[in-house]
Design a protein around this nucleic acid. Sequence first.
DNA 1: GAAACCGATGTTGTATGATAACCATGTAAG
DNA 2: CTTACATGGTTATCATACAACATCGGTTTC
Lengths: 239, 239
Amino acid sequence: MTLKLDKVNRGPHLSTLVASSISREIAQGRLRPGDQLPTEQQLAQTFGVSRNVVREAIARLRSEGRIWSQQGRGAFVADEPNATVLTIDFDALQQATAFQSLFELRGILEVQAAALAAKRRTDDDLLAMKEALATMRNAPYGSVMWLKTDLEFHKTVAAATGNAYMVQFLMFVSERVRESILASGNQQRSEDLAAVTLGEHQRILDSIEAKNAEEAQEAMRAHLHGAASRVGLAEEQSE
Amino acid sequence: MTLKLDKVNRGPHLSTLVASSISREIAQGRLRPGDQLPTEQQLAQTFGVSRNVVREAIARLRSEGRIWSQQGRGAFVADEPNATVLTIDFDALQQATAFQSLFELRGILEVQAAALAAKRRTDDDLLAMKEALATMRNAPYGSVMWLKTDLEFHKTVAAATGNAYMVQFLMFVSERVRESILASGNQQRSEDLAAVTLGEHQRILDSIEAKNAEEAQEAMRAHLHGAASRVGLAEEQSE
DNA sequence: GAAACCGATGTTGTATGATAACCATGTAAG
DNA sequence: CTTACATGGTTATCATACAACATCGGTTTC
């Protein structure tokens, strides 16, 4: 417990700072699983905030499964982060291997989702996909609108699986991937790429329309392979 | 805002109940993106708790990205749950279709993880898997220890992919699935099943040891198929 | 008339103190 | 040795107060 907070802090809430500070102590191993946290009063004094703020931070960490607390005893670092919430550290994603791992995970989900979508899609699903693709055609390549509709298209594919969690997970992972790409500023910009990307999407759409799971899977794989190289990822042979 | 909380509530924290209650209002569309939440005072009055408890709930929802708040104005439902955290509502999982969806998602990840593990596993990975399997043999079927080592085995498989996010996601999903199964009390108990399950695990281990991705994939699929029927899930033809 | 100023009011952010419920521990009574 | 009780420490909750900020209306000023 070393961090001291300035009195003048017009940024995130104090509880957020306290929470991430404690979180860091845990991540860095200065607070080990099973360890008892300082009492709320001590924490309040250490950080120079009210006990109320500390409690908000504690509540947050508890909801994230990082700690657990018992009335009359204290708060303890959770043995295993049996989290009821899943988080991804943005900073860690800046490292190439981490990014590649997340990209791979997304790929697995996307490819399987495409196959399932081809089997289960309804006409409404198809309509939504076509609509998203049409919107993307009218957006300038690389623009915010373009990126948004790109994600939207993939979302409609995921939705066509009829699996709500597929949508939730895929969007979660994709968002993180997209953020990381934007942050690194690694995307190339070219008019040609727009046509290429749209063509890949069209192929996915067609195969799902034809209810051809094998083809949809392969089309999605090809699309992701293209996306990877566009971002400068040396992709590994898969399957 | 309808829920009234009993004064006598010796369960989860009040802030947890308030948070999930508001969360439900959002999920059910009674609070739409952009809508302003009632003031903290109103919420406190509605739920019959102090403003302090409401603030802890708000802090939690804010950290989950579901709402945002500005000093002097109020709290608002986030336009897009651009959450930096991913959560799964436990209550919703009680419904059969939701559970089935999550089970399917887990299956996708497990199967692909098994294939990747077969390709990339190191000798250390293999050792960890064997160790986990050995521990499971010594645990009584259906016991807490058994369930724990079962999860541990699957974790070692996921770890053998070398993809940290695969581990994180798979464990997250598996935990939720396991919780839901335990809550429903739907698992059968029989000595025979122990041998069957162990056999399935052994087959997975063997194929990964042989670096046979196809076989590992198939073994994992079979294992999950067995697990599904053991839990009473009518599984759908996949692939 | 338009723009700038000003104050009243409502809301969130934070601090402080108090009380109830609960746990752990030690100590005295049986 | 066991039980009962007293005590101190900790979390959970409540209540109140104040600071910081936003909004809105009226007033002044140009």
